[in-house]
């Protein structure tokens, strides 16, 4: 067991090291930030000074060493665009993103869990068919499309909710529904599959024979059995939402990491690109690691295979 944990930790560290290279190269591949940072009146000397100031004139491997050393000290450099520490900018944006991902997850569970359970309880019924249609529709609708439709309906046609912005409770509704709807599709399918399996299990069958009320069986036993894979999946899904919210954040002008990263890439703002990708990736990897370890604890076979 300890060996498994150590191996997984080691693997994660190696992956992180690889990530730094990938991110560093990716950021630099995007092109020269100078014309985006300086006005067209800037002289060649101004441009040269800018490159020198940020060390962009040095050979790429030297730049990487500097980058890595600074990152190990928690320093991601100064944003070209905002002239503030990139890490602070990202920290400012991670809050809104985590909140949105959390609330969306909640929406996804509130929609997906009951639907999945209902479909599992009545296989072959019209309800199951409707749930299947719902899930396959949810997975197929691009979030920018559903987001726009929601704005069109609930912010413009019926002015009930704010169309964009951040800070108030109302601001959460449309983006969280957009993202939650998308995530609910897979939560539904997963709940459905696991509930079906749990209901078929000998244990539940026996309880049924013993005449325990159906509602109690479903809620207490079947759901409990089905919940482990669902919870695991939610953990992974949460990681996906962190990065997958880019488009939703754009549509709703949500000041999160996704939108910051899109802007940073388009602005060739290397330090922000590096800090934002790194932080997101570390979050995702931490969640994955936690899920793996949790699984290993709960199911010892995993660590042995």
């Amino acid at each position: 067991m300890a060996r498994f944990i150590l191996t997984r930790l080691g693997q994660t560290l190696v992956t992180l090291a690889l990530l730094t290279i990938l991110i560093f190269v990716l950021a630099r591949l995007t092109g020269d930030p100078t014309p985006l940072v300086l006005p067209s009146e800037a002289t060649e000397a101004d441009r040269a000074f800018f490159r020198e100031q940020y060390g962009l004139d040095r050979p790429i491997h030297e730049q990487y060493v500097v980058f890595l050393r600074n990152v190990l000290h928690g320093d991601f450099g100064i944003s070209f665009r905002y002239r503030e520490p990139a890490f602070n900018l990202v920290l400012m944006a991670i809050g809104p993103t985590l909140q949105l991902a959390g609330v969306s997850m909640l929406v996804a569970v509130m929609l997906g869990l009951p639907l999945g359970i209902a479909a599992a309880l009545r296989p072959g019924s019209w309800l199951a068919a409707a749930v299947r249609a719902y899930a396959s529709f949810g997975q197929a609708v691009p979030t920018f499309w559903s987001g726009l439709m929601l704005i069109f309906l609930f912010a413009i046609t019926l002015p009930l909710l704010p169309s964009s912005g951040y800070g108030e409770v109302e601001n959460f509704v449309l983006p969280a529904v957009t993202l939650g709807f998308y995530a609910s599709a897979s939560v539904t399918m997963l709940t459905w599959a696991n509930m079906t399996e749990a209901l078929r299990s000998d244990f539940v069958q026996m309880e049924r024979v013993l005449g325990i009320p159906r509602r109690l069986i479903v809620l207490k036993h079947a759901l409990r059995n089905a919940s482990l894979p669902i919870v695991t999946y939610l953990g992974l899904q949460f990681g996906l939402l962190l990065g997958g919210a880019v488009v939703t954040e754009r549509v709703f002008a949500w000041p999160g990491v996704g939108q910051m990263l899109v802007d940073a890439i388009l602005n060739r703002d290397y330090p922000v690109v590096q800090a934002a990708v790194m932080l997101t990736a570390v979050l995702v990897m931490t969640i994955n690691l936690a899920v793996d370890l949790l699984y290993a604890v709960l199911d010892p076979r995993v660590s042995r295979s």
Partner: peptide
């Protein structure tokens, strides 16, 4: 070990962001 760590690194990056950076590049 090498391949799987690279795979992990690629999977840890949110794919739309990676795509965006590649397109910019």
């Amino acid at each position: 070990a090498v391949i799987m760590r690279i795979v992990d690194a690629f999977l840890a990056l949110p794919f739309i962001l990676m795509a965006l950076a590649f397109v910019a590049a």
